[in-house]
Write a protein that binds this DNA or RNA. Structure first.
Length: 114
DNA sequence: CTTTTGACAGTCC
DNA sequence: CGGACTGCCAAAA
C-alpha cells in the first residue's frame, strides 16, 4: 500500500502487546529503517489516533520517556505501563527522591520481542 | 528543487 | 562517568 514510513510506524507501534515496551530504534527497525528512530518519535508526536496508538509503550533506548509526553505527564505514563504489567525501576536510586522523572523501564525484561 | 527541523542513537573526549 | 556532537532519514515549507 505504499504507505509512507511514518504511516508504517503507526502500524508497528499498534502491534506492541500490552505489558511490553519498544524502543524508538526497534520500532524504526521494524518499520524498515533502524536509523529512523527520530522519524518514529516525530511520527508518534503527531499522534493521529490517541487512545489507539500506545505512545506510552514506546520509550528511549535507555528506557526513559519522551520530554514532551502528550498523555498528561511522565507520571501518567508510568501509571499506564505499570497497569499493563510493566515494571519500572529507579535510575540508580538516589535516596527517596522518587519523582516520576528518572524512572526507567526495565528493558532487560519488558522490551518487546517481535 | 533546496533548506530546516525533529518524542533518537551512537560515539568521542 | 558525564556531557556534547555528529550522523541518519524523512516530511513540510
Amino acid at each position: 500500500m505504499a504507505e509512507s514510513f511514518s504511516s508504517k510506524v503507526y502500524e508497528v507501534v499498534r502491534r506492541i502487546p500490552a505489558g511490553s515496551v519498544a524502543t524508538y530504534g526497534q520500532v524504526a527497525a521494524l518499520a524498515g529503517n533502524p536509523r529512523n528512530a527520530r522519524i518514529v518519535g516525530y511520527a508518534l508526536h503527531e499522534n493521529p489516533e490517541p487512545g489507539v496508538i500506545p505512545c506510552h509503550r514506546v520509550v528511549f533506548r535507555d528506557g526513559s520517556m519522551a520530554p514532551g509526553f502528550a498523555f498528561g505527564g511522565p507520571e501518567r505514563q508510568r501509571e499506564l505501563l505499570e497497569g499493563e504489567g510493566v515494571g519500572f525501576v529507579p535510575p540508580v536510586s538516589e535516596r527517596g527522591n522518587a519523582g516520576a522523572e528518572g524512572w526507567l523501564v526495565d528493558l532487560s525484561r519488558f522490551q518487546w520481542q517481535a
